[in-house]
């Protein structure tokens, strides 16, 4: 399968505090780790305010724009901004949409953008995120006539923003594998959060205990893939977070870069049949993010892993977490039916 990476220098203009983890160099960590061949780099594309309004409330967009232009440095306790941040956020949304709209079966398009997006709700910017890039991309696909889209979010933090955008919708399936919200920001993403109204059963949360390792990640990802296949989406979007890596400073999931490779491999056959795209979320360790991204991308494209390290295993209680998911999700998705 062909692999396209949509990125550019423009994303480095979004500046954060000196000791903030979501630094512009994150994209360098990835691009400086790139394998010599096997992918094509595409130029980023700037979005406009109409694109943001596909997901976000107008007053919120305007509040962020004026706050940033006033030179204020923070949108919430975690979300640092600079004067260029609003502009860069438009580029991030536009590039995510461009990757999504141009994706085809057998062609993987991944948007390496910042700021990330999955914590941003319709009315709030938080958790390093200004606007919700993946949600905007999904809405753009819906506008183009796709009737069902799935999102798989494997960032270590739950994508509370993305969940909230689609919580009452049945046309978008949101599946997230993340660290137990009792132990990590944002404190949402328990299995019993399953959606509401028409959307009941179309939000799937699969928490993992700290220290889960690749074993936990792959157990949950295997279940996630089966649910996504049952949903039979027209397209699949990935919220790509690499902060579950064992060297990452913010989380304790203990994944290895081989775990990310196998996540990609699990979805590879599906991506040969339907359009697949992705947007970058978290990942703050140079090795975990840089090598983890390429391993995921190459796994998705059905190729050998460009990088390796020893795999990691998890505690026995992963089984208990799987049962927890099963008890909440089983009635909507008969995966465990005999």
């Amino acid at each position: 399968m062909r692999l396209f990476v949509h990125t550019g220098e423009v994303f480095k203009a979004h500046k954060v505090g000196r000791f903030h983890p979501e630094v512009p160099e994150r994209l360098d960590y990835i691009m400086s780790s790139s394998p010599h061949a096997g992918f094509t780099v595409e130029e980023p594309k700037k979005g406009d305010i109409d694109l943001l309004l596909l997901v976000h409330d107008p007053w919120h967009v305007e509040t962020v724009r004026t706050t940033v232009l006033k030179g204020l440095t923070r949108l919430d306790i975690d979300t640092d901004v600079s004067r260029e941040s609003f502009d860069v956020a438009l580029w991030a949304a536009g590039t995510a949409v461009d990757a999504a709209l141009r994706s085809r079966p057998g062609e993987i398009r991944l948007a390496l953008v910042r700021p990330p997006g999955h914590h941003a709700s319709r009315t709030e910017s938080r958790g390093f995120c200004i606007f919700n890039n993946i949600a905007i991309a999904v809405e753009a696909l819906r506008e183009r006539g796709m009737s069902k889209i799935a999102i798989f979010d494997f960032d270590a933090h739950h994508g509370d923003g993305t969940q909230s955008v689609f919580y009452d919708r049945r046309d978008v399936l949101y599946v997230s594998v993340h660290q137990d919200p009792a132990t990590l920001y944002p404190g949402t993403g328990f299995p019993d959060e399953v959606g509401t109204g028409e959307g009941e059963g179309y939000t799937i949360n699969m928490p993992l205990p700290p220290g889960s390792g690749d074993e936990g990640l792959l157990t949950m990802t295997g279940v996630a893939k089966r649910i996504i296949e049952m949903f039979s989406p027209d397209a699949l979007g990935f919220s790509m977070g690499f902060d579950g890596h064992h060297r990452d400073p913010l989380t304790e999931l203990n994944y290895s870069i081989m775990g990310f490779y196998r996540v990609g491999s699990i979805f590879s056959d599906l991506c040969s049949r339907i359009p697949c795209f992705g947007t970058l979320e978290g990942g703050y360790d140079p090795f975990g993010l840089g090598k983890g991204f390429w391993n995921f991308a190459f796994g998705l494209a059905g190729r050998d892993a460009p990088y390796t390290e020893g795999g990691t295993t998890g505690p026995e209680k992963i089984e208990a977490y799987l049962n927890w998911v099963k008890s909440s999700v089983g009635k909507y998705w008969p995966l465990w039916a005999r």
Binding site: I77, F128, Y185, P186, L250
Partner: peptide
């Protein structure tokens, strides 16, 4: 831990 990514540390 549930209100900020950075503050707990």
């Amino acid at each position: 831990e549930q209100t900020s990514k950075i503050a707990p540390f």
